[in-house]
């Protein structure tokens, strides 16, 4: 394999991206619809859950994490881990004040 092949991998067709885009639009519709229903404390949980799924789709497909070398995913997970840790530590303090 010469250098060019390493540098220009993962060439997809257009199809998968259009599908993901449709999925993202559907999830946007869903999150707006769910926000209209009063389900108390679950509203924020559902909204964040849907937002996370959308973010995952963008990361995995649009940003090519799925076809990228594994080290990229490891990096992204470490970054996400530290952000989530900050939230957990903060709220483990705030929730019990």
């Amino acid at each position: 394999m010469d250098k060019q092949d390493i540098n220009t991998e993962h060439s997809h067709g257009y199809g998968i991206y259009v599908l993901v885009w449709l999925g993202l639009l559907a999830l946007t519709g869903l999150t707006v619809a769910v926000a209209g229903i009063n389900i108390g404390g679950f509203t924020i949980v559902t909204a964040l859950l849907i937002a996370s799924v959308k973010a995952y789709l963008v990361l995995a497909i649009f940003m090519h994490l799925r076809s990228e070398s594994k080290i990229f995913t490891v990096f992204a997970l470490v970054a996400a881990f530290f952000l989530i840790i900050s939230f957990i530590l903060l709220f483990s303090d705030y929730s019990f004040q």
Binding site: T31, V32, A35, T43, I44, A47, L48, I50, A51, K54, A55, V58, L59, F62, M63, H64
Partner: peptide
Amino acid sequence: ENTGLYWHLVDIIWIFLFPLFYLI
């Protein structure tokens, strides 16, 4: 491709901003 990565990150941030400000 790197410009695209930047653009998608801007999109991801909006994905979280939107429900947190507009849908509560």
